[in-house]
Design a protein around this nucleic acid. Structure first.
Lengths: 146, 146
DNA sequence: CTTCTTTAATTGCATAAGCAACCTAAATTA
DNA sequence: TAATTTAGGTTGCTTATGCAATTAAAGAAG
């Protein structure tokens, strides 16, 4: 194994949530600025639905790297907020297909805008090349341990 | 602003917890393999205490980038597990100094070992130079939005 | 001193995650 | 076609997080 001891301490603390926590909080804050009353976790579900409706809970679980109970509860809460609905799949009655409500669709523009703002704040001052390397590293790390 | 659209989608999902979630889960699993019955969050507290005891809760909050209530409850749970104790600071009675118990100290070797294993699994196959770039990027991102 | 402000920690309330156990429907296979 | 296995979701239990409001001690200002 290579000697990663030079950077592992700080790197580890970054990997273990420091950066992603900071991003979540910032996204949360920005959503609030945009008058969106949703959590950053709910945003990740809506994000995928804004791109494509009718996903199953299992598909959402895979896309967001969460377990099934987490999705069940996120969908419960989003249903309570009248942003999505479960539609039982006629071809496979085990599955729920998740659709946005009108309310849910209305949030798309602002939701996309605030996440774009967030990511631009996050990567401000960084060059494409280093971002690309960072992405490759994160991708590789994810493949290593997922 | 630079055009980050090429990578932002995937990058964003990495930043928003995919990688850190994977690492947490892996650490959790490895801790379990090492017969350590603690959560990965508890590990992050213990980690700092293994390096230096007598930190205040506020210091732990800063080190782990959590808010004070989170620390209060993590310390509560660690106290229940008899791994740490709160000692009221005689010079500033608002503060608690957090010390490890014998039990808590006993976990150091295995705790450090399992986290080292975890990080080595995570960065397997990656070169020092790309890790360094990734770390710089994450650092910059953190500075941008913290 | 006494008042005002800041700081450390706690509590309450709501949301979210992980894991294990469970239920039901679908797919396999015998 | 009956029996078994697999897959999609849900529920229970425990832990963790964020935010706002609160208490108590310390420090600063008058």
């Amino acid at each position: 194994m290579s000697d990663v001891s030079i950077l592992s301490d700080e790197f580890y603390s970054f990997l273990t949530g420091k950066v992603s926590t900071a991003i979540s909080r910032r996204l949360q804050r920005n959503l609030k600025c945009g008058k969106l009353n949703i959590t950053s976790e709910q945003w990740t579900i809506l994000y995928h639905l804004w791109l494509e409706e009718g996903l199953t809970q299992q598909e959402l679980a895979n896309l967001t790297f969460r377990d099934k109970p987490s999705i069940t509860r996120l969908i419960n809460n989003l249903e309570k907020l009248s942003l999505v609905i479960r539609v039982n799949d006629k071809h496979d009655r085990r599955s729920n297909l998740i659709y946005l409500t009108k309310e849910g669709r209305k949030l798309k523009d602002e939701g996309m805008k605030q996440s774009a703002i967030t990511i631009n704040e996050a990567v401000a001052g960084l060059g494409l090349e280093e971002l690309r390397v960072a992405q490759q590293v994160l991708d590789k790390v994810f493949q290593n341990i997922k």
